[in-house]
Write a protein that binds this DNA or RNA. Sequence first.
DNA 1: CTTAAAAAAATATACGATATATAATCTGTT
DNA 2: AACAGATTATATATCGTATATTTTTTTAAG
Lengths: 250, 250
Amino acid sequence: MMANKRPGMESGEAGEALPLLSGRLHHAVAQRLATHVVNGDYPPGHVFPAEVEHAELLGVSRSVLREAFRMLTAKGLVSSRPKAGTRVNERRKWNLLDPDVLSWQIQCGASDEFLRDLFELRMVVEPQAAEMAALRRDERQLLDMANALDSMERYTLTSPKGRAADIRFHELLMEATRNEMLLALSNSISTAIASTTAIKHGMQDSPRDPMPEHHALYAQIAEGNPAKARKAMITLIELAHADTQVALRR
Amino acid sequence: MMANKRPGMESGEAGEALPLLSGRLHHAVAQRLATHVVNGDYPPGHVFPAEVEHAELLGVSRSVLREAFRMLTAKGLVSSRPKAGTRVNERRKWNLLDPDVLSWQIQCGASDEFLRDLFELRMVVEPQAAEMAALRRDERQLLDMANALDSMERYTLTSPKGRAADIRFHELLMEATRNEMLLALSNSISTAIASTTAIKHGMQDSPRDPMPEHHALYAQIAEGNPAKARKAMITLIELAHADTQVALRR
DNA sequence: CTTAAAAAAATATACGATATATAATCTGTT
DNA sequence: AACAGATTATATATCGTATATTTTTTTAAG
């Protein structure tokens, strides 16, 4: 249950804490660094200490640190060149739609602008997607959506099962658009949304039951009328936006 | 100009080729592997050889190979666990909107489905974005867009300058939406589009001049009337789609 | 004094050997 | 047959060292 032994190194002498998961140290380091980056602790332009010093500052080997930085590089958060060092990129270089980047931003306390942008993007993409899904879904997908609807009827969004069904429905809907990229985009977003609602219902279990009004809208989306599905989705997103805002103003 | 010297290793004895860029071997390896993944040479479920063997198969050190796999992992293309090895994920796990993944897919010969999905996504996002940009752009952005328009008037899409102005205009437009995520999404797409048109105009320099009709549409988009901008963008995307299709059928 | 070339320094990048952790598989016992 | 322990294959992690690249500084020429 302890962190990886480092041969020839007395355990935990340098780094402050960093207990985390054992067999995936690089992942933990990457997440830790990424958090500070999206958080603004390391603003764009910030230069990290030289590899050697930085590694012993964090109490990990250089290899691990390098692998962690590879992840951040892959997501556009940092870039590095010899002599110049490794530095934080400007926000315009970040892969803001990467699922990890999205969830890191939410974990670090989503700003108002972030939420506004996110829901605006939803409003651009998802009504149209709902329309396409209504036109293209097949029998099996219709059946699966009906099942998810049933689950949502039985549980509320405050329960894990209810939330799972919610996510499942979304996933089915995007799958029914038969567009891989739309699916990828919407999955990124809904993962982020799921974290948001998880925070919402986890931190404070909301007193009111959010399901009844939602359920009717979901049913309209599943029905098969493109125009109706579009309108229902718009209403649904508006509700979700309002919900999230009051939740974060708690 | 030669590849990194490997101390105590006679140069280039194992790996077939892999000359590539010198100080960024891991990047080259990642790209090489990614190409085979998106290409389908390594289909979802494919298990890579054990780290040690794989490394000497490619003629690189294990560290480099590990860093390369970190990049692919960060982009959702592969995942790895002890004993089970490193394997290719299902497509639904891939970050299809990652700029690199997009460009890799195009490099590996974009399939019909890919192009269809991509232009469908454009059609969902960009008309709406054009509308938002028309409402929100400020004076400086208007000026910059006018400049880009001038450049486009002077050059054609077949010239590098013309293409640069084209990309610049797109970027300005998305910046004017004042939505970071919309910007990120559209930049990913337009990077991919740029590669496509680069292929198109690089492989065969198209005989006809594509600019005149495009230019009028760009002007309408820049004008400031939301509804007009939306309609012009729709027409523009339709033109681009048709263009790309005939180009790839050459 | 300015400019260009050369040297130096700082830093990322790369290699190899070795040790540990993890999870699947095999094996023996109940 | 089912469960517990040993085995094994694999990823993960560390250390020491060597090379490449680029920025900075120095030096020399004009």
